[in-house]
Simulated assay, not measured.
Amino acid sequence: MAMDAPELGRGLFHILVTGDPALAAQVVHEDFHNREAAVSPTACSTPGPAGVLASGAWMRSAFSGLRFTVLGIVHDTDQVWVRLRMQGRHTGPFVRFRDGALDQAIPPTEREIDFEQIHALGLRDGKVVTHEAVRDDVTMLGQLGVFPPAPASLLRMVSWRLTGRAARAAAHVSAQAADAAAQL
């Protein structure tokens, strides 16, 4: 049975939380493109459901108890806009990439995150085919103690980079994302 637009919107975020490959195949179009994948491991740029599974693995590797609380959904025939809160506990390195290479690794802080996002999803053939987001990343980085940079947080990040822990974390999370993408 086909899902309606709000169900597709909720379904996409349920995939990120659960890593459910069957749901990914049901919700995500084979031509899916995630505009936001530029800061994620390379596997997250994979078209189709595999890229969504990789993105979920990347986020879950950094944030335990990851959840997306939907605050509102608006839709028309070919788009869904989802306003939500991303929540979880920062228990693993949060690694951001630029052009496929390590950009920043934030060591685990054990801090809670809770911030708002708006996602625009394009629909085609009864599935999600595109994703764009407007996120309050400054609030998230503030909740992690990274922006503005607290001296202790800055020192930990520099230490991770100098000792190679940041590079090892990037390699590990990239492998996890690639493994998740290979589930299909």
Rank of each mutant, 00 (worst) to 15 (best):
L141R: 12
I106M: 09
T91S: 11
S159G: 15
G92N: 10
V158G: 04
G145T: 11
A133F: 00
A152H: 05
A167S: 14
G142Q: 12
R165N: 14
W160C: 00
L154G: 12
A120K: 04
P151M: 06
H90N: 14
A101Q: 15
A167C: 04
L144N: 10
G164S: 12
L162N: 08
A170Q: 14
R89I: 13
R83A: 11
D103L: 12
H131N: 13
A169C: 08
R98M: 07
S153R: 13
E110Y: 03
R83K: 09
D114L: 06
G164I: 10
M86A: 12
L155S: 14
G126E: 09
R124Y: 00
D114E: 11
E116V: 11
G88W: 06
V134S: 10
A166D: 14
A105I: 01
Q104N: 07
S153L: 01
E112D: 13
M140K: 11
G122Q: 04
R168A: 15
T109H: 11
I113N: 12
G142F: 03
A133G: 09
H90K: 14
A133V: 04
M157P: 01
T109I: 09
A105K: 02
L162V: 14
T91R: 06
F94V: 01
F97I: 05
P93L: 02
T130H: 09
A120Q: 06
V129K: 12
G122D: 01
F94A: 10
R83H: 09
G145L: 10
R161V: 07
L154D: 04
L154I: 00
I118D: 03
A105V: 05
A120L: 13
R135C: 04
D125G: 05
G122W: 06
P148F: 08
S159E: 11
P108C: 03
H131A: 13
E112I: 03
L121H: 09
S153K: 03
F97L: 02
R85F: 00
E132K: 00
L121Y: 13
A167K: 15
